[in-house]
């Protein structure tokens, strides 16, 4: 039984069919990759799963439960966290306060009014997670002052605050240097070893192929091929998809 399954999802924006009968299954405890040319619908699929975009058709299930049409805060509360392609953090809050925003999901509406910003346990959990991604020293800094790579780490850390079972990462290795890419890969492996399931959109083929148990290739809004990284790499349809898209990622896929 997959932990996350998308079946037959379609979504159009005006005349553009961003998703067309797209299906995908992610096994519990796996690291799944999602690749495809630009505009093939990867981020839209993330948005549908996490409740930011409504599906015109199709269903999304989290274990047995259908989560199609839930709001982002409800999806998050069920245990699905995500990061964004262009990092999104709260720039005028401190790094620690960024973490604390994510601790507040279990509360009633009125309790938030009367309780202080954080309990000591929440602060120590937040600091542990910052330490885990390696930016605990920056906790008191205003988040707007962070570098792009540090923002990526912060985003990963605050998604972890709520202890989600599934984590969706949108281009975790995009625009960061090699050292940091390796550090992020290492963190993903460590979390996976603790039982967390990942679904990762990424253009860096080496990153995807080395990290993922299973890779799905998207093309024009549909899932084209799914399989082990080696199978996918050799599949002629994948090359066609990248060629047809006129994308320069062909060599990367072929050469790996």
């Amino acid at each position: 039984m997959p932990i996350l399954s998308v079946s037959g999802v379609s979504r159009a924006f005006g005349g553009v069919q961003a998703l067309q009968d797209c299906s995908l299954e992610v096994a519990e405890g796996s690291i799944a990759g999602l690749i495809g040319p630009n505009g093939s619908g990867k981020t839209t699929l993330f948005n549908v799963v996490t409740g930011y975009v409504r599906a015109d058709q199709g269903t999304v299930r989290f274990r047995e439960k259908e989560i199609t049409g839930l709001k982002p805060n409800q999806v998050f509360a069920l245990g699905i966290g995500r990061t964004f392609q262009l990092t999104r953090i709260f720039e005028r809050l401190s790094v620690l306060e960024n973490m604390l925003v994510a601790t507040q999901r279990r509360e009633g509406w009125l309790r938030g009014l009367t309780r202080s910003k954080s309990s000591p346990e929440e602060v120590s959990t937040a600091l542990e997670l910052l330490d885990f991604v390696g930016i605990a020293g920056l906790a008191e800094l205003q988040a707007g002052a962070l570098s792009y790579g540090q923002r990526k780490l912060l985003e990963l850390a605050y998604v972890l605050v709520a202890d989600p079972q599934v984590i969706l990462l949108d281009e975790p290795a995009g625009g960061v240097n090699l050292t940091l890419i390796n550090r992020i890969a290492e963190k993903i492996r460590a979390l996976n070893a603790q039982g967390k399931t990942f679904l990762i959109v990424e253009h860096n083929m080496e990153f995807v192929m080395s990290l993922c148990d299973r890779v799905t290739v998207m093309h024009q809004g549909s899932d084209l091929v799914s399989g082990a990284p080696e199978e996918v790499r050799r599949d002629p349809r994948v090359l066609d998809a990248y060629l047809g898209g006129g994308d320069d990622e062909l060599e990367e896929v072929a050469g790996g």
Partner: peptide, 8 residues
């Protein structure tokens, strides 16, 4: 939107 996605 990010706040919403973090459960706020």
């Amino acid at each position: 939107d990010r706040a919403l996605g973090l459960g706020v």
